[in-house]
């Protein structure tokens, strides 16, 4: 198959989930688009290695996670969180209730630890647990415990914010 056609197919099948992962990680739309673009640039450059791979999405997720991790190393966490709050608050004034809930959910995710953000966005996008374990390099047993804790933490955060 032609490389560009194959890339287009891969992009269409995975871009939405990768965008969610990047959005969950950075907490803002612009950075999420940048990281997603960077991820797929790496995918394109490694495309020949992926041919005939059964679970191509696992590798794309792996690249996305590592791209996110290297991105945050130059970010100031405090500054980013404050910025995220401002962006989301300003935007929320004009969006519908549904969008407000989604913004709120992303805002809560941005308050989690980095690896928690990565794992929970994959859980929310219904990526199978063995695949999440493979992507994050965390053993299956540890991952299940982690997921249980993150779910609780996120639910608490969301409900706390909803009360205000």
């Amino acid at each position: 198959m032609n490389k560009e056609v194959l890339f287009k197919e891969i992009f269409q099948a995975n871009s939405k989930k990768i965008y969610h992962l990047c959005y969950g990680y950075t907490g803002d739309d612009e950075s999420a688009n940048d990281l997603m673009q960077e991820t797929f640039m790496k995918v394109w450059q490694n495309l020949d290695k992926f041919r005939n791979q059964a679970l191509i999405s696992t590798w794309i997720y792996r690249i996305a996670v590592n791209t996110c991790l290297s991105y945050l190393r130059v970010e100031k966490r405090q500054a980013k969180d404050e910025l995220t709050d401002t962006i989301i608050e300003t935007k929320s004034e004009e969006v519908s209730e549904k969008n407000e809930q989604i913004d709120q959910l992303y805002k809560c995710i941005s308050h989690l630890e980095e690896n928690e953000r990565i794992i929970i966005t994959m859980v929310l996008d219904e990526v199978p647990y063995p695949e999440i374990a493979e992507i994050s390099g965390i053993s299956d047993g540890n991952l299940r415990v982690k997921i249980h804790r993150i779910k609780q933490k996120l639910t608490e955060l969301y409900n706390q914010h909803e009360r205000f």
């Binding site: 890339f7 287009k8 992009f11 269409q12 871009s15 939405k16 990768i18 965008y19 969610h20 959005y23 739309d29 999420a32 688009n33 997603m36 673009q37 797929f40 640039m41 394109w44 549904k98 969008n99 809930q101 989604i102 959910l105 929310l124 996008d125």
Partner: peptide, 15 residues
């Protein structure tokens, strides 16, 4: 989460 309509603004051509 599944109700969200947020879509990436980047296409495969942009990449």
């Amino acid at each position: 989460w599944h109700d969200q309509v947020a879509l990436p603004k980047v296409s495969h051509e942009d990449v």
